[in-house]
């Protein structure tokens, strides 16, 4: 009985707290944490302190003018991870200093106007995030 009462309060508090909840499809803490070369693919891992959005649309990784939307998504204990799968032959064409963006949804085609994405990172941060430039360290993986 006592458990049931406490659980009801617990449940109600969660519903109440949840009432104002809005989503950022891309967590502000999202960052590239690892680049791992495998046989045919290179895995680029992004982590965040909160889950990446689980919805209908896809996350898209923009590197230069190329886009990638094949990834594994996990959401464990409130921490989010995306592991993008990049064909190795394409990864080998990348050069140091290329901009990397993450978008939720395919907002632009592969000939995207980069300054539009850059603007979107400021005006619509829940759908677009700048992840920095490709470094020599990433390319050496």
């Amino acid at each position: 009985m006592r458990y049931s009462f406490l659980y009801s309060i617990f449940f109600s508090v969660f519903l109440l707290l949840g009432f104002q909840k809005v989503s950022a499809q891309i967590p502000s803490s999202a960052t590239i944490v690892n680049v791992l070369s495998k046989a045919d693919e290179v895995e680029i891992t992004l982590n965040a302190d909160e889950p990446f959005y689980v919805g209908a649309n896809v996350f898209v990784l923009h590197i230069g003018k190329l886009i990638y939307d094949r990834y594994r998504q996990t959401d464990v204990d409130g921490k989010g991870t995306l592991v993008f799968l990049i064909p190795k032959n394409e990864f080998e064409t990348f050069t140091k200093g290329q901009d990397i963006y993450l978008t939720y949804g395919e907002f632009w085609t592969d000939d995207a106007v980069e300054n539009e994405i850059h603007d979107a990172c400021k005006t619509s941060p829940n759908w677009a995030k700048y992840l920095g430039k490709l470094s020599a360290e990433m390319l050496s993986k």
């Binding site: 449940f11 519903l15 949840g18 909840k21 809005v22 989503s23 919805g55 759908w127």
Partner: peptide, 25 residues
């Protein structure tokens, strides 16, 4: 997107709910 489903709607379910229009601007 979400409010068609009560389980995805804040205030209607205990976990995983949100207003998917995340922008406040």
């Amino acid at each position: 997107h979400n409010f068609f489903n009560t389980v995805w709607t804040p205030g209607s379910y205990i976990a995983g709910t949100s207003d998917d229009w995340g922008s406040t601007t």
